[in-house]
């Protein structure tokens, strides 16, 4: 699993995730995989038992996963959210802001490019659950 870029200290879930439907039926798994058409809010009642949510990006242009991650974080979920699939280095800055804290791209990132992508933006206009201070808050102390 060396091709997972991870921003967490806790242990990685070591078994495969299940689909949202399967998870809701059996609820003995702690890893679930969200496809673009799934409603992340279906998981909200079970957040205590979830350790990993994989959000799949079958194509990078389908941005539903960004909302899914924010919905989970806004509900207080603090487990791992991993972006998987067609995840490109030019998207991971936005993903990080939406609450993703691990990345498993189909095609590995160039390390230097990934580092640059995470570090590039010194400021942000919007507050999200990533805790960064938005520009308007800096302006008004």
């Amino acid at each position: 699993m060396s091709d997972i870029l991870r921003f967490r200290e806790d242990e990685t879930v070591d078994h495969a995730s299940v689909t949202v439907d399967a998870f809701l039926e059996q609820t003995n798994s702690n890893a679930v995989r969200i496809e673009p058409g799934d409603d992340a809010r279906a998981l909200l009642q079970h957040l205590d038992q979830i350790k990993l949510v994989e959000v799949n990006f079958p194509v990078f242009g389908d941005g539903r996963g960004y909302s899914a991650a924010r919905v989970l974080r806004e509900a207080g979920y603090d487990g791992e959210i991993r972006a998987v699939g067609d995840v490109l280095v030019d998207q991971i800055g936005f993903m990080r802001r939406c609450g993703f804290d691990s990345f498993e791209p189909e095609k590995a990132f160039d390390e230097a490019d990934a580092k640059a992508a995470f570090e590039r933006w010194p400021e942000v206009y919007q507050p999200t659950t990533d805790g960064r201070t938005p520009i308007w808050a800096k302006r008004h102390g």
Binding site: Y66, F94, W121
Partner: peptide
């Protein structure tokens, strides 16, 4: 501008 959720 650069809205993280609404860029795709």
């Amino acid at each position: 501008s650069f809205h993280p959720e609404f860029s795709f």
